[in-house]
Design a protein around this nucleic acid. Structure first.
Length: 239
DNA sequence: GCGATTTCGATAAATTAGGT
DNA sequence: ACCTAATTTATCGAAATCGC
């Protein structure tokens, strides 16, 4: 409980919170100087904020020799730890573990159900986004579709990067935050496969045919999950 | 040792809370 | 409304560290 108060205290400063957000979004190590420049504050102030974030283990710091002489500088990055605050207390993590283990007892049938459910949730999610725009799919350009996919992925907290390749009519899709990471560690194959199906569901809500292939997985030591999605455009079908 | 560079610690400045 | 105490944040200078 003492620790909770510490966390809320650290997060209660807007500057600190924005600094954390900034680091969350840029997917790399940052220096004190960079934060100072970015937020137009004195480097010492930036250092103070960063050290407080490090204190509650939201950030991880590492000293690195500057190469130009002088005391080694510190590099800050997101820590692997998960900070969860829920009032009143809820434990969906435990629930998902129980559900996952139960599903495993069902064998291949269970897996199949898991993937199908993942797929339809992904599709459903994009369906809601489409509905929000109140426009039909054929009114949207590919760029619009990418934007829509990205927006939905951001809503899901994925910190995504999407790149549209015109010639290959494919999408390079990177995810820098996996919201299922802790559960996925229990059963990487099932949870990641389910998440992939979720993505395919999302893609197929706006593109008719999608072939998704995994390039990188953050559970195999990479910094991010990356996929290449080959999509078949409606115009190609007609030809 | 010296210069460059960063951290640490003291203090000033600002904000907030409490009391009369 | 005003003053004071307490807390938080920003600034500045000293100390520490590294390469030469």
């Amino acid at each position: 409980m003492e620790h909770t108060l510490k966390i809320t205290n650290v997060l209660s400063d807007p500057t600190r919170f924005y600094i954390y957000q900034y680091i969350t979004n840029c997917h790399r190590d940052v220096t004190v100087q960079e934060i100072a420049d970015k937020f137009s504050i004195h480097p010492n102030v930036a250092r103070l904020h960063l050290s407080k974030l490090e204190d509650v283990r939201m950030l991880y710091a590492e000293t690195k020799k500057t190469g130009r002489g002088g005391r080694p500088s510190k590099l800050y990055r997101l820590s692997a730890e998960v900070i969860q605050l829920s009032f009143p207390f809820r434990n969906y993590q435990l629930l998902s573990s129980i559900l996952l283990q139960s599903l495993e007892k069902l064998g291949p049938e269970g897996s199949k159900a898991l993937y199908e459910t993942g797929y339809s949730f992904g599709k459903e999610m994009m369906g809601q986004e489409l509905h929000r725009l109140s426009s039909s799919i054929d009114e949207l350009s590919n760029k619009d579709k990418i934007q829509l996919l990205k927006h939905a992925a951001i809503l899901a907290g994925l910190k995504p990067e999407l790149e549209w390749d015109e010639e290959e009519s494919s999408i390079y899709f990177e995810v820098f935050n996996c919201p299922f990471k802790e559960t996925a560690k229990l059963n990487k194959d099932k949870v990641c496969m389910m998440h992939q199906q979720f993505f395919i569901g999302m893609f197929e809500a706006v593109f008719p045919d999608v072939r998704l292939s995994e390039r990188q997985n953050m559970l195999s030591g990479c910094q991010q999950c990356a996929y290449k999605a080959h999509v078949c455009e409606p115009s190609h079908i007609m030809n």
